[in-house]
């Protein structure tokens, strides 16, 4: 499940940053992607919510330090459905 989420996340990232060469891993952070600033971060969160049809709370979003954190949170929400 996590691998599928990561693969879908990668397409969300590519769209958000308008860069088709982006390759993400679980350890990817904002420092690894050019243009990942505070506003893009919030845009990316919106895109992820829309794509996976989930809604994050403030505490969840605040705890995202790397892509793995996003994947875990999305997976938990999917399981609860």
């Amino acid at each position: 499940m996590h691998k599928n989420i990561q693969s879908e996340l990668q397409s969300v990232f590519r769209k958000a940053f308008e860069n088709n060469s982006i390759v993400i891993s679980g350890q990817t952070t904002a420092n690894d992607i050019y243009g990942w600033d505070s506003l893009t971060h919030m845009t990316l969160i919106n895109d992820i919510e829309q794509h996976f049809k989930v809604e994050f709370s403030f505490n969840e979003v605040s705890s995202f330090n790397c892509v793995d954190d996003m994947i875990k949170c999305i997976a938990e929400k999917k399981l609860k459905r």
């Binding site: 904002a30 990942w36 505070s38 506003l39 971060h41 403030f58 605040s62």
Partner: peptide, 11 residues
Amino acid sequence: DGANKFLDIFK
């Protein structure tokens, strides 16, 4: 500063 700045303000 950084990608989490908006969130960090409220934190």
